[in-house]
Amino acid sequence: MSTMVKVGMADLKVVSHPDALTTLGLGSCVGICLYDATTKVTGMAHIMLPSSKAIRKNENVAKFADTAIVELIDQMEKLGARKSRFVAKIAGGAQMFSFTSQNDSMKIGERNAEAVREILKNMGIPIKADDTGGNFGRTIEFYSENGKLIIKTAGKGIKEI
């Protein structure tokens, strides 16, 4: 029996085969999914902000892209996964409301996605699939069986990446 484990906002979880991970209603946040195909160890983080550096209240490592990715790798390695085998899939980073005159605070989704890409690149983890941007919410499901990521939307259908 496989279990679908829920990842909340500013939360991260790691599972082994045959379990799967899901996070519901991603908006400007980004869902980061890491997978080791050899051990089938699977991790997911639901981050809200790009960096913990300029934020004083930063105890929750799962809230920030920089600290969440480090923690996710650490927890997955404890379950026997190897970072050198990791591949990543990312989704989210939408801009739910748009205005003609944009300021930076409105583009947080884009900045989140950009930060995640940059950090994964620095970590040497290839991004196999990237479904970010747009102006709509996403629910994602990530399967340890094969590293498949299912993306569901309200009114824009379901797809697999």
């Binding site: 906002m9 209603g25 991603l26 908006g27 809200m48 209240k57 919410g137 309200a154």
Partner: peptide, 22 residues
């Protein structure tokens, strides 16, 4: 205006408050 999943819409205030708080 946006009509979409509650989680996605509420991520907007959550992220703003998230800079200060949980």
């Amino acid at each position: 205006l946006s009509i979409d999943m509650a989680g996605a819409i509420l991520s907007v205030p959550a992220i703003h408050f998230g800079q200060l708080s949980d």
